[in-house]
């Protein structure tokens, strides 16, 4: 087991190292951040000064080695746009993203579990069809559109909930619902198909024959076994929610990691781009590693693959 974990850890570190080179190079191919932070009236001398001061005049290899060496210690340099340590910006933004993703995942589980189970138990009925509609809408309606409708209608017109910003529990509701609905669809369908398979298995039939009451058969015996792929899916989706909520964070003025990434990219803020990409990649790697370990614990055969 230890060998398996170490092997996956090494793979993750190699992936991060390769990614650090890729993001370093790509970030520098599309523009110069000084063109955005210096005014139109800035002179060549101003550019030279700023480039020298920010260390952007050094050879790329030297810049990369300096960046990589510091990144290992958690120092991602200073933001070119905001002129603050990038690690500080990440520390400010990451918790907001984690909290929102947790809320969205909570909403997802609260909605997807009952819906998925009820749809499976009532296969082919109106309940099943209604659940399918929820799933199809969640996956087909663009997140941006859902977010705007909620902002315009629920926050702007009905004035039930805040439209944006992080300000207490109520501010989580609209962005959490928007983010969560998309995941509800996937989770619900996965749970429904898992439940259908399990409900048809021999041990469930045996439980019924032995006289176990139906709710216990469904919610305890069947659900427990249908959960394994669902948990994996939810874990991976959690990391995706943390790292890719740019649209939701933008619409709901949510100061999270996604918006930081967007701001970094649009202002060619190399240190921020590099830090956000590596942080999110590390997060995904940790989640994947955890899921791999979980699988390995559940199914010992996985440990001996390769």
């Amino acid at each position: 087991m230890l060998r398996f974990v170490l092997s996956r850890l090494v793979q993750s570190l190699v992936a991060l190292a390769i990614l650090s080179v890729v993001v370093f190079v790509l970030a520098r191919t599309t523009g110069d951040p000084l063109h955005l932070i210096l005014p139109m009236s800035a002179t060549e001398e101003d550019y030279a000064h700023a480039r020298r001061y920010l260390g952007l005049d050094r050879p790329y290899v030297e810049q990369y080695l300096s960046f990589a060496g510091k990144a290992i210690t958690g120092d991602f340099g200073t933001s070119i746009r905001a002129r603050r340590p990038v690690s500080e910006l990440i520390r400010e933004r990451l918790p907001n993203s984690l909290r929102l993703a947790t809320f969205a995942m909570g909403v997802t589980i609260l909605v997807a579990f009952p819906l998925g189970v009820l749809a499976a138990v009532n296969k082919g009925t109106a309940i099943d069809r209604a659940a399918q509609v929820v799933a199809v809408l969640g996956q087909s309606l663009p997140t941006f559109w859902v977010a705007i409708v909620l902002v315009e209608f629920v926050a702007g017109r009905l004035q039930w909930l805040p439209a944006g910003g992080v300000d207490g529990f109520s501010s989580y509701v609209l962005p959490g619902l928007t983010l969560g609905w998309f995941v509800v669809a996937g989770l619900m369908r996965l749970l429904r198909s898992g439940m259908l398979e399990v409900l048809d298995s021999e041990y469930v039939k045996l439980a019924r024959v032995k006289g176990v009451i139906e709710p216990r058969v469904v919610w305890v015996h069947a659900l427990k076994n249908a959960l394994i792929p669902v948990v994996t899916f939810a874990a991976i989706y959690f990391s995706i929610l943390v790292t890719t909520a740019i649209v939701v964070e933008t619409v709901f003025a949510w100061p999270g990691l996604g918006r930081l990434a967007y701001e970094g990219i649009s202002s060619r803020d190399f240190p921020v781009i590099q830090a956000v990409v590596l942080t999110t990649a590390a997060l995904v790697a940790v989640v994947n590693l955890s899921v791999d370990c979980l699988y390995a614990l559940i199914d010992p055969r996985i440990r001996y693959v390769r």
Partner: peptide, 15 residues
Amino acid sequence: KLVPEEATRIAILRR
């Protein structure tokens, strides 16, 4: 307040 999306700015103005 930094509110990038216009619909959101208008909603908070209305609120």
